[in-house]
Design a protein around this nucleic acid. Structure first.
Length: 473
DNA sequence: ATGTGC
């Protein structure tokens, strides 16, 4: 086992080196412990370190864990969990451990874990954390303002079948995928006139942002056409019951957002108090500090930039299609907002709510929750549940790593299977095949108290980043 | 998720 595997199991960074020595002893012990049995032993020590403090193999690791836990710190806050009932869609232990770590952040005042939760950097994906006057760059995420945008088009649903090649051409011609990918010529949008000098990093990266405006990146990002089905008329959507053609995109703030995250998390990590060093990427910035104010300004600019990014994608694709937009829904799902909440009935106060892979779900607010290329997305209306900090899941949530997915699935075979089901995938990798995700229906069933479903979107023509233009890992 | 550095 290596450092990465131990951290994935939930071993705090501060004691990984000690844990590695324990692993070495266990491997070299008579009979040699390996693989799954080794992981189980590490997990057992993590769960109840006091029971192992005199253990020949694990005593040193257990004592370090006890010492770490005994550091004088505040009592962690509690977090509420929404979770699918099916074991295959459950939230793994490592994501819980990350959420529990986030609850030790001194400024934390409210927390919740959504049913699509899985391990991320710092806060888990699907984590919601409210802090007093404090922002955590990695509780927003690397891809600041990663978001969804759905445009309902003035084309009959049947045209997705009868004019399929026309839709494919629009998708292939109007979108760009890949790490570092740019548009030539550069696209235009009013966000370029915003004040990019709010921080050094946004000032220096403005030209990169301009070149990348209207691109989709890699990973789980996609642009797809599908059929939107409304069971009844909805006034907030402004649509009658029926079947529609719709365009759905998932993208964010590209390289510039990642640079903002890296810059300000590094500053925050240098400022971490010694007793909290193991919180690592959960490092925070006070909004009273110059750095905190700078991050907040840059984050909000990235929010506008990511929204513009989607607007350009939809503009380019619908123009090639010759279609017009008759309705739309969009939302950030990696962001932080200043909101007023009544936490634990202690009265209303303004807090910073981080949603990292979580959909804003205040009462009446519309959002889009995608499943996968082979399963539906849902247009939802929030119910404003206080205990979830007015949040919901942002998707199905991964159930296996990208590497595990590439070992298990072959994309060409998955592509044929999807084609048989009437879904044409123009490009993607095996690590985004439907089987790598939890069951979106199980995830939606776990949050019926948080959101109401208004419409269902079935993907028909999908474009994601192909294998030729992605990073190795 | 990203793009640079190994």
């Amino acid at each position: 086992m290596n450092r990465k595997q131990l951290e994935k199991l939930g071993v705090p960074a501060a004691v990984v080196a000690v844990a590695l020595r324990g692993v070495g002893r266990a491997v070299n012990a008579g009979g040699g412990v390996r693989g799954g049995a080794l992981r189980e032993q590490v997990a057992a020590v993590l769960a109840t370190p006091h029971d192992y403090s005199q253990d020949q193999l694990w005593g040193e690791f257990a004592q370090s864990l006890v010492a770490l836990n005994d550091l004088p710190q505040r009592e962690p806050i509690a977090y509420r969990v929404w979770e699918a009932t099916s074991p295959a869609d459950a939230i793994d232990r490592a994501a819980h451990r990350q959420m529990a770590d986030a609850c030790r952040v001194p400024a934390a005042v409210g927390a919740a874990l959504m049913p699509d939760a899985h391990v991320g950097y710092g806060l888990p994906i699907g984590g919601v954390l409210a802090c007093a006057n404090t922002v955590i760059p990695y509780a927003v995420g690397v891809d600041i303002a990663c978001r969804m945008k759905l445009s309902v088009l003035d084309l009959p649903a049947e045209t997705l079948t009868t004019r399929r090649s026309h839709f494919k051409e629009a998708l292939l011609g109007g979108t760009r995928f890949g790490v570092g990918v740019e548009h030539h010529p550069k696209q235009q949008h009013a966000v370029l006139d915003a004040d990019w000098s709010v921080t050094r990093i946004t000032r220096e990266k403005r030209d990169t942002a301009w070149k990348q405006l209207g691109t989709s990146g890699s990973g789980n990002h996609f642009v797809e056409f599908g059929e939107l089905i409304l069971a009844r008329r909805d006034e907030s959507l402004g649509l009658d019951a029926g079947r529609y053609t719709a365009l759905l995109s998932h993208s964010g703030s590209r390289g510039v957002g990642a640079a903002v995250c890296a810059t300000y998390s590094q500053i925050a990590q240098r400022l971490l108090p010694a007793g909290y060093a193991d919180l690592g990427r959960l490092a925070w910035l006070s909004l009273d500090s110059e750095e905190g104010q700078a991050y907040w300004a840059a984050m909000n600019l990235m929010g506008d930039y990511a929204a513009a990014n989607h607007a350009v994608i939809h503009r380019l694709v619908t123009k090639r299609l010759g279609a017009h937009v008759v309705a739309g829904v969009e939302n950030h799902h990696n962001f932080a907002w200043k909101e007023t909440h009544d936490l634990e009935g202690a009265g209303s106060r303004e807090v910073v709510v981080h949603r990292k892979g979580a959909t804003p779900a205040a009462a009446g607010v519309l959002g889009v929750i995608p499943g996968s290329m082979g399963s539906p997305a849902f247009v939802v209306r929030g119910k404003g549940v206080a205990a979830s900090l007015a949040s919901a899941a942002h998707g199905a949530g991964r159930r296996m790593s990208r590497r595990a997915a590439r070992d298990r699935f072959r994309f060409a075979a998955e592509q044929r299977r999807l084609a048989d089901a009437g879904i044409e995938v123009l490009s993607a990798g095996a690590d985004e095949t439907p089987g790598v995700y939890k069951d979106i229906h199980a995830v939606m069933a776990a949050q019926t108290d948080l959101v109401e479903v208004l419409a269902r979107f079935d993907p028909k023509i999908v474009r994601m980043c192909g294998d030729g233009s992605r990073a190795e890992d």
